[in-house]
């Protein structure tokens, strides 16, 4: 693992230990959330999008500043039918890519955005400045060895010996034999198959923003190696903003979209809304946030109902 990332993580966790928790609201001024606001926004997300739930997580990892039963949010078994990398190619071919940027060329790409001719309307949308973390992290992910042991048949040559000779399921007429049961089906082409993700949102005390974590599974429900998770991240962000770190509430390492610029981007989104006469309410924060995250993970089909006016239709 890159030494710089390690140092940075240990600095951050030490700093978090001594930092107070934000108690006053600054979401309009800085795009950040207090702990109470995170819980309010989370409650609203769970109520409007019931595929999301609060969870308590590992008792040993419990944060005392959050309610015991509301440590983080999670939605499981979210389909990801295409790789982001292949979707981007389609968009480029169709000329339908939108650069959410007004000052430089390193902004966020809205891969699910509008066709190019509408670009002028997007002027007011927020930009995402070049991420500082990118310099520290470049190549960091690659240097981590295949972190998760997958289900690799090569390691267990004796598994075939387990196979039942009296195959009850196959002789049971009421068991559907799906097409993937057919022996000739290749087992190593899971790139093109449906993946599923557990997407979780934690509160990052240091950056005072929500933070998204991704746990991917292949079609046979085996954990995906983080290298493969990167295929489902918009390629502009894959090697810059996604890091592999310990999950604050779950066991093991997971891919996460680094929150170092979340506050600034959320602030810009809120500024745009306010400039259009929409008064942002803090309980809508996570809907905006998840919409923003959809530009990073465009093909992971999690729910974020937009039940309010973004002000984008005003002429």
């Amino acid at each position: 693992m890159a030494l710089k990332q390690k140092l940075y993580e240990s600095y951050k966790s030490t700093a978090e230990r001594f930092m107070g928790v934000r108690t006053n609201s600054a979401f309009k001024e800085k795009g950040v959330l207090s702990v109470t606001e995170f819980v309010i926004a989370g409650d609203n997300l769970v109520s409007k999008c019931p595929t999301w739930s609060w969870e308590a997580g590992e008792p040993s990892k419990r944060k005392t500043y959050l309610p015991a039963d509301k440590q983080f949010l999670i939605t499981r078994n979210v389909p990801c039918l295409k790789r982001a990398i292949s979707v981007e190619e389609e968009y480029e071919a169709a000329g339908g890519e939108v650069l959410l940027d007004n000052d430089d060329n390193e902004g966020w790409l809205a891969t699910h955005g509008k066709p190019k001719e509408n670009n002028q309307e997007e002027e007011n949308l927020p930009s995402m400045d070049a991420l500082e973390i990118s310099k520290e992290n470049k190549g960091g992910i690659k240097s981590i060895p295949a972190y998760f042991g997958g289900e690799e048949d090569d390691d267990i040559p004796d598994m075939e010996g387990f196979e039942d000779s009296d195959n009850l399921a196959e002789s049971d007429p009421a068991t559907l034999q799906p097409s993937y049961f057919v022996a000739h089906e290749p087992e190593d082409d899971n790139i093109l198959r449906t993946r599923t993700y557990d997407v979780s949102i934690t509160y990052d005390k240091y950056y005072q923003t929500p933070r998204v974590w991704l746990t991917g599974y292949d079609e046979s429900r085996s954990l995906l190696n983080p290298e493969l998770v990167l295929e489902d991240v918009s390629q502009d962000h894959a090697h810059k903003t996604v890091t592999i770190e310990d999950h604050p509430h779950l066991p093991g390492k997971h891919a996460s979209i680094h929150p170092c610029r979340h506050g600034a981007v959320m602030k810009k989104i809120l500024d745009v809304l306010m400039s259009r006469g929409v008064e942002p309410e803090v309980d809508k924060y996570l809907f905006l946030f998840l919409k923003f995250m959809a530009s990073v993970i465009p093909t992971i089909e999690y729910d974020y109902t937009m039940d309010f006016d973004l002000g984008s239709t005003s002429n």
Partner: peptide, 16 residues
Amino acid sequence: PKGGKLMPRFVSLAES
């Protein structure tokens, strides 16, 4: 079943 056959699964967590 695993991959169409009745056999157990194996997972290695050695790396983590």
